[in-house]
Computed example of a mutant assay.
Amino acid sequence: MEKELNKLLADLVVEYHKLQSFHWYLKGYHFFDDHKKFEEYYGDIADAVDGVAENMLKLGLKPESTMKGFMALSTIEEAKNKEVTSEEAYEIILKDFKQLLDEVKSVKALAEKDDVYVTSNLMDDYIELFSKAEWMVGEETKKPHFPGQDA
């Protein structure tokens, strides 16, 4: 359980920083709306980071807490230090949220198997978070982002 939770924790931390980078480096037509949305997403991820780490501590497990450790465990790719358009960011975020949804479902299944219901219940919250976010981001990727662009 510790290994799977630490991998999830690492992926959440990297996703947090990626969303923050997109928030900072966002350029383009929908800057105001998307800038605020990315801030909302990284706030949700920050809460999940804290929730996973606290859950691990309650279980007597040791959460990773170093950037070096997170980078060694994470399979989410870091953002680059460069400008990003809404279209580029949403495509990446959609892929990442799908991966995170799969991860929390796997952790839930393991927690259920091991009768760790407090972790299973926490994963339900994240299944709801990433299911809704995946749906919403998926819808966003279908929208035209530039004046005159067809859907």
Rank of each mutant, 00 (worst) to 15 (best):
M1K: 11
E4N: 12
N6L: 03
K7Q: 15
L8Y: 04
V13R: 07
K18S: 01
K18W: 06
Q20P: 00
H23E: 11
W24C: 02
L26F: 07
K27Q: 15
G28N: 09
H30M: 11
H35E: 08
Y41V: 00
D44H: 01
A46D: 09
D47I: 02
A48N: 05
V49H: 02
D50C: 06
G51T: 08
V52W: 06
A53V: 05
A53Y: 04
E54Y: 12
N55G: 05
L57R: 15
G60E: 08
L61D: 05
F70I: 13
M71R: 15
I76D: 00
L94D: 08
L94T: 10
K95R: 14
Q99H: 07
L101D: 04
L101E: 11
E103H: 10
V104D: 03
K108N: 05
A109Q: 09
E112K: 14
D114W: 10
D115A: 12
V116I: 13
V118M: 13
N121S: 15
D125Y: 00
D125G: 07
D125M: 04
Y126K: 08
I127K: 00
L129Q: 02
L129C: 09
F130S: 08
S131A: 10
E134V: 04
G138D: 05
E139Y: 08
K143E: 15
Q149H: 05
